[in-house]
Design a protein around this nucleic acid. Structure first.
Length: 279
DNA sequence: ATAAACGCCTGACGGC
DNA sequence: TGCCGTCAGGCGTTTA
């Protein structure tokens, strides 16, 4: 489910607590159970428990779509992929069907479980003292001020690639997924099949603004919740194009279409977002 | 360098 | 009701 705003929302709620659920910062890991072996990338299963046990959760943050747990000397990275979620449960909650990793924690707000729940089993966990090996492969954070319009335009120039697949490439820019990419492209009035290297300075600046606007709006609304995966976000009620095929564009009334771009379902207003071949 | 095809997984939904 | 195909907020590997 998660793109940048959803991962940010999860990191924030674990870090700061919400609705009767305490922050798990400074909580200590007492017990570890991995329920689906392939979820763990590193280290080997046999050393996971010894490495994690008695560690303190010193920090919780986000980089791209990765959750970053600073465990005071070692880092746990979690990627939720399509269906993952991180939940805080009571200490003695029964293990649920799709729980893949459970950490039992002791802390001031009471003992609890930190659960990685992931129906489709695509999610992955890394426990490492070299998190940069992974995180340094990511492109810049879209909301960082150091990503100026000039820098962004420079990243695009020379690229010979369809715009949408490039935006989805995490080594180009970190955090966009299928929903927010469609939303940003519509807001920027750019067709997903445009050649990324062909954007004018004005267009790339418009695109960067649109990306920031949809991500910020997503964060402000606690992310989006769809189908059977629900976490209390409400951005899904404010989509401009995603999931709105057959419905009128909110800007011009043209019917939104859905087509495949780079193997991904893509929602477009053909009038607002002129096809590269159109004139 | 770019892009397609496919694999990894489970569950929801629509059509018959 | 049951069965079937299709689709899903992601990404790595292989192939062209």
């Amino acid at each position: 489910m998660p793109e940048l705003p959803e991962v940010e929302t999860i990191a924030r709620s674990l870090r700061e607590g919400n609705a009767g659920q305490p922050s798990i910062l400074q909580y200590r890991i007492l017990r570890v159970e991995l329920r689906w072996p392939r979820t763990l990338v590193i280290p080997q299963l046999a050393v996971l428990s010894p490495v994690l046990k008695s560690r303190i959760i010193a920090g919780i943050s986000r980089r791209g779509k990765f959750l970053v747990f600073d465990l005071d000397g070692i880092t746990m990275l979690i990627h939720l992929r399509m269906s993952g979620d991180m939940l805080v449960r009571d200490w003695d909650s029964p293990i649920e069907k799709h729980n893949r990793l459970i950490l039992w924690l002791r802390g001031e707000g009471g003992n609890c479980q930190l659960v990685f729940n992931d129906p489709r089993k695509f999610g992955r966990v890394w426990v490492t003292n070299q998190p940069a090996y992974l995180l340094d492969t990511l492109g810049p954070e879209p909301l960082e001020e150091s990503l100026t319009p000039a820098v962004f335009h420079g990243m695009l120039t020379g690229r010979q690639r369809q715009l949408k697949p490039l935006l989805l490439d995490q080594t180009f820019l970190a955090g966009l997924g299928n929903i927010y990419t469609d939303e940003a492209l519509h807001l920027a009035k750019l067709h997903p099949l445009r050649n990324a290297g062909g954007l004018s300075k004005q267009e790339s600046t418009r695109l960067l603004s649109a990306i920031r606007k949809v991500l910020s709006e997503g964060i402000r609304r606690n992310g989006a919740s769809i189908d059977w995966v629900y976490r209390g976000g409400e951005y899904q009620n404010h989509f401009r194009v995603y999931g709105r095929e057959g419905q009128p564009c909110l800007m011009c009334g043209t019917i939104i279409t859905r087509q495949l771009v780079g193997q991904r379902g893509t929602h477009i207003c053909e009038k607002c977002q002129k096809h590269p071949g159109a004139y």
